[in-house]
């Protein structure tokens, strides 16, 4: 597997003139391989969104370097590198520019001077990938939250990005909308091998990742598979996060004297354990 993105000892401060002030991101290193799904979790103010901005050159680090496919991100190659990264933000209403769904998806293509004929093909293709092809002439503002975010993803996909960054992209959606978006992202990953970085404090979303980076106060506190991260248990709660539903339920049941073998991350595991340890005797 080849590396597609890396942070090498990145430090960033919003107030560099004040040496005393806490750094938004402090000495953070990690690397992401092509096709991986990485979740970055952490409390509000832990540095997650700053990291997203550093990845696409909206901010530049004070120390350290960001590499995209081995190239160090600089002011010079910024535009070329940005074209490989798609980003979807938290509030779907804040990122629409087009009057119709297809105009919106075409916006970045137009900006990049893609010829009309090719644009038509790419817009159609991108909307098909997020299953919104039936809405090309709809007004974005009249869509549901989940649909809006899928259109936003299509807008990013039309640029053929290698990396998709989701910055709290599901946090304002209702449960169905969230599921729609996550299913779409999962499918895209399998189909086109997209690398996904999701910044989230939804622990259920983090469970879908291959690896989780756990941020606390601007520093990388831990990194590992979802199972390794959720094994940290109460430390997650102490740092402002929560446990996945099944893990929390397991602990509550054990406190009630119910026999269970180990920690569980999914409901299926927990239901099966409940059955074999307590009922099927």
């Amino acid at each position: 597997m080849s590396e597609i993105l890396s942070f090498n000892h990145i430090t960033f401060s919003y107030t560099p003139e004040n040496a005393e002030a806490r750094k938004a991101v402090q000495d953070v290193s990690f690397s992401v391989n092509q096709g991986e799904w990485i979740a970055i979790v952490g409390h509000n103010g832990s540095g997650k969104s700053t990291m997203a901005k550093l990845m696409c050159g909206l901010l530049f680090p004070e120390q350290g370097e960001v590499r995209i496919k081995r190239d160090v991100l600089t002011e010079e190659n910024l535009w070329e590198i940005r074209s490989q990264i798609g980003m979807v933000f938290q509030n779907p209403d804040n990122q629409f520019v087009g009057a119709t769904v297809q105009d919106d998806v075409a916006f970045s293509l137009e900006n990049n001077g893609v010829p009309y004929e090719e644009m038509v093909i790419r817009v159609k293709e991108a909307l098909e990938q997020v299953k919104m092809e039936g809405f090309i002439n709809h007004e974005p503002h009249h869509l549901s939250g989940g649909q809006k975010q899928r259109v936003a993803i299509a807008g990013a996909l039309a640029m053929y990005p290698q990396i998709l960054i989701l910055d709290e992209a599901t946090s304002m959606l209702d449960p169905q909308g969230r599921e729609e978006v996550l299913k779409t992202v999962q499918a895209l990953r399998e189909k086109i091998g997209l690398t996904v970085l999701s910044i989230t404090h939804d622990l259920e979303e983090a469970l879908l990742a291959d690896r989780v980076i756990f941020m606390n106060d601007g520093k990388k506190y831990a990194e590992g598979t979802p199972a390794e991260i959720f094994a940290l248990g109460d430390q997650l709660v102490d740092f402002g996060l929560d446990l996945p539903f099944a893990t929390k339920m397991t602990k509550l049941l054990q406190a009630q004297g119910v026999q269970l073998v180990g920690q569980h991350m999914t409901e299926e595991e927990l239901v099966n354990d409940l059955w074999t340890s307590n009922f099927n005797k």
């Binding site: 406190a255 004297g257 119910v258 307590n278």
Partner: peptide, 19 residues
């Protein structure tokens, strides 16, 4: 969640007592 844990714990204890 707390309520369900309690309820299930209860059901399991009763199940054991019956055996």
């Amino acid at each position: 969640e707390e309520e369900l844990a309690e309820e299930l714990g209860q059901a399991i204890r009763e199940g054991r007592a019956e055996q």
